[in-house]
Design a protein around this nucleic acid. Structure first.
Lengths: 334, 334
DNA sequence: GGGTGTTGTTGGAACGCTCCAACTTGCGTT
DNA sequence: AACGCAAGTTGGAGCGTTCCAACAACACCC
């Protein structure tokens, strides 16, 4: 026989299928004798409840659909860890689909998840148009991670980019830096807020006149070009805040290639605390987003809607933290 | 109404549910008029076929269960890209589950995938005991990626580690190196084969007397310690082959910290071509495994069993390639 | 004009489970 | 002795599809 069903188990244990069902879901009012008989029969047959059939009758799957914009970014891998862990704790499974980097792929992935009748959707860093998201939210609760939008069927979890950039600048100021430059993230997600945090904190310390921003784009090359621009003219900054780790690494390389030592000649701070930043050969001071916690929070938000029928949107902003490593030090002539 | 069903669509279009079903699967023998009527009704109702119900009656889900041992390793992310892409091409979905790094987590993940009635399983780099794998293979076809075992219900896709290490040594020999050392991967997957490839190729070039191997463990720290051991005594090697990129980076850092220049004083080769190796600040010569191709192949193997009912095990070994970057050069006094 | 197809359409059964109302038993209470 | 109630157990209906046998309508061919 292909896969044994609940009927096979019932026959073998000499009870009704209903009783087997009760045992499988370990319901309270089953006599110990029958429970054991059923479990024995199930074990002998290598029976495994068919989640498909169960989902059909219960009209829910206990599966949370997760869309990941980019698996190659370990940032998302950490978020997923948080999602999967929390989902498991609460009796749900996380089902992953990637958009294969194209926005149209994301739409397809969502469609697939909806056909499979995921109970809810978590979209991490989606590049998809907002309309498509609200459309999906008509069918099923949706939580956005690392992207915000306002629609009352959609919840959001993000990190406080302004606060993160502030932490970074405060750290540099405390070390004695005054000529602190910024390589921004262009039109990338959160880049604007990070730039704002930088600018405001500079102002708060009366350093607006020392502030300089080079255009970047969250890439390694963007970081390298940013350095080139900053070194090309004006007094050399004693510290640089890059908009993310990848561009910080591009900057790091450009700096060492032009003969400058980090952190002796110039300090450098990244953003995201990716695993690469922790490599000892890079050892980058950076801002950490609580990635796993963001994933867990996303699950909690979803389940509030699913199990407690919350209707109003919630927007959770999580605090980033500073991780000091080897690329920051006091300026040379302090 | 919650979610419209096929009956709602049928009523609205004035046809039977069977006809709607035919249109949805776009069957050939449906009149153009009715097809349009059905599609219009479906669109108006925002109808989406229920994959759960379909799977129940067809007794298959067209879902391939994928177990990833570690999402943080971008190696697996690439494999997954290959899997997801190929699966989509062939009308399947990839459903991902992570083991959360614990072998027991892997067993649970497999159990979940089987309850959800995945049609087949792809296990990438599983740390799970072999018994559990053959057990799962009794229910459903299983393909292993980056791990091999022999059981005729299980197929394997791996890279040719011996050949990869050979490529690396040949490259160094061609540059003029003779004192080539190896930092191995300890008991890690494929480490033994890589060491063998190294040793054999050294022998082939009559360099056995120059060969030296330091113990490593695929980690950054292992690479650093390996360098310490190699520098501690004996003539300094002019080139090092590390068992993977991560340990190569550890080695790189240890070398520069002890005042040696790479590649001027010493050449360095990694293995895996992870995204980190491509960072310009690291710029590591390494061996590339065809990761996406491995993922695609895994899907193909699974579908051969699923659709063509192949029974005998297949073991596919894919050829690695050399990626030359900036950490290798001719030895100083050649 | 009676077979023989072909094309298009249909209702009912089945997939494997959960849910529910209903049944049986045994026990305590009046 | 009759009753009520809780605990334990059961069969049947139903979840939303697909599959299949059957049928209607029409064309074609001697």
């Amino acid at each position: 026989m292909a896969q044994p069903t609940i009927l096979d188990v019932a026959a073998r244990a000499g009870v009704s299928k209903s009783l087997v069902s009760l045992v499988m879901r370990d319901a309270p009012s089953v006599s110990e004798a029958k429970r054991r008989a059923v479990l024995a029969a199930a074990a002998e047959l290598d029976y495994r409840p068919n989640a498909v059939a169960r989902s059909l009758v219960q009209r829910r799957t206990r599966v949370l659909g997760v869309l990941l914009s980019d698996l190659h970014n370990t940032f998302f891998a950490d978020v997923l860890d948080g999602i999967a862990g929390r989902a498991a704790e609460r009796g749900y499974k996380a089902m992953l689909n990637t958009g294969n980097r194209a926005p149209s792929g994301e739409a397809d992935a969502i469609e697939t998840l909806l056909e499979l009748r995921a109970d809810g959707l978590i979209l991490t860093g989606p590049r998809l148009e907002a309309v498509r998201i609200t459309e999906a939210a008509r069918t099923v609760p949706v939580v956005l991670v690392a992207r915000t939008m306002s629609a009352n069927a959609v919840d959001c979890v993000s990190n406080d980019d302004v606060a993160g950039a502030t932490l970074a600048v405060e750290h540099l100021v405390k070390l004695g830096h005054r000529r602190i430059a910024h390589i921004d993230g262009g039109s990338g997600a959160g880049a604007e807020a990070r730039k704002q945090g930088y600018a405001r904190t500079m102002r708060r310390h009366g350093l607006t006149s020392q502030a300089r921003t080079a255009r970047g784009d969250y890439t390694e090359e963007g970081g390298a070009k940013g350095v080139a621009a900053l070194l090309a003219r004006g007094p050399r900054p004693t510290a640089i805040l890059a908009a993310n780790d990848l561009s910080a690494i591009g900057a790091l390389d450009a700096l060492t290639r032009s003969g400058l030592q980090v952190p002796e000649d110039i300090s450098l701070v990244g953003y995201d605390n990716t695993s690469v930043a922790a490599l000892r050969h890079i050892d980058l001071t950076t801002i950490d987003q609580p990635r796993e916690a963001m994933g867990r929070t996303a699950v909690d938000l979803l389940l509030e809607r699913l199990e407690r029928r919350r209707k109003a949107a919630r927007r959770v902003v999580m605090p980033p933290t500073l991780v000091v490593r080897g690329t920051t030090a006091p300026p040379r002539e302090s």
